[in-house]
């Protein structure tokens, strides 16, 4: 549904809605291009000299994470034998603004204590979905225990060479980075407006009954007008 819900009819609300959409669009504007850069670095390294894949991806990931504070993490995940024979499966780097460090650190799943419990990377949504659909996907919001310990979205896209899947490339963005821009704009729309991700997952809710990361039940969902944000896996829910 891209029509504007029947409750959003005043001129003020219409312009508030336009601003929310504009803000979300700007927030995720650089995502596809950034993921492409990571994927291209990996593809080039795999095709020419797989031993260099980690170094090449690291270069781009560092550039991505230090040139803007928009992204919390960036990298490649691969379970392809050509890659894993010469590099780690999880080639992912995390920005460290809170620790006052300018240099991103490599994500070491073993060191996060939770790494050991991950039964298989290929089962996790941010790997599984783009691997199956061969299209970009936004996962979340979910608490990223392996990375930021915060609610985050992970955007991933398949890394393919001549149709063969070599893994996924992606970036993390915290919900907080979106909250800051969106909250006030949502307030102008409705005191109980909700930003939903992937149809029914709560990303930001002004209504305190719904926690970030929870799933809106169908009977609750029915009580809202839903406005999808074009080009995003996000939608805005305004109570009828």
């Amino acid at each position: 549904m891209t029509h504007i819900g029947k409750n959003v009819k005043t001129i003020d609300q219409k312009s508030a809605l336009a601003r929310v959409i504009q803000s979300i669009t700007a927030w995720q504007n650089d995502v596809p291009e950034t993921i492409d850069r990571l994927a291209e670095a990996a593809i080039e390294a795999i095709s020419s000299d797989p031993r260099t894949v980690e170094r090449q991806v690291e270069k781009v990931a560092f550039d991505v994470l230090t040139s803007t504070d928009r992204f919390a993490g960036a990298g490649i995940v691969s379970i392809h034998p050509t890659v894993t024979a010469r590099a780690r499966s999880l080639m992912w780097w995390v920005a460290q603004p809170a620790a006052g460090r300018s240099e991103p650190i490599p994500l070491d799943a073993d060191l996060t204590e939770l790494g050991t419990y991950q039964s298989g990377l290929e089962e996790i949504e941010w790997y599984r979905v783009p691997a199956a659909t061969r299209q970009g996907h936004m996962t979340g919001p979910f608490v990223d225990y392996m990375c930021t310990d915060q609610f985050a979205f992970t955007f991933t896209a398949p890394v393919e060479i001549s149709g063969e899947l070599y893994g996924v490339a992606g970036i993390d963005m915290t919900v907080r980075s979106l909250e800051n821009e969106i909250e006030t704009l949502l307030e102008a729309l409705s005191d109980n407006a909700i930003l939903l991700a992937n149809h029914n997952l709560v990303a930001i809710s002004l209504d305190p009954r719904f926690a970030t990361g929870s799933r809106l039940k169908p009977r609750d969902l029915e009580t809202y007008s839903i406005i999808e944000v074009p080009g995003a896996a996000l939608s805005i829910a305004v109570p009828h």
């Binding site: 419990y117 608490v143 929870s214």
Partner: peptide, 14 residues
Amino acid sequence: GGLDLRLAGEAQSV
């Protein structure tokens, strides 16, 4: 241990 941790993770609470 893995099961307990994964369940805690699914509750989305750090």
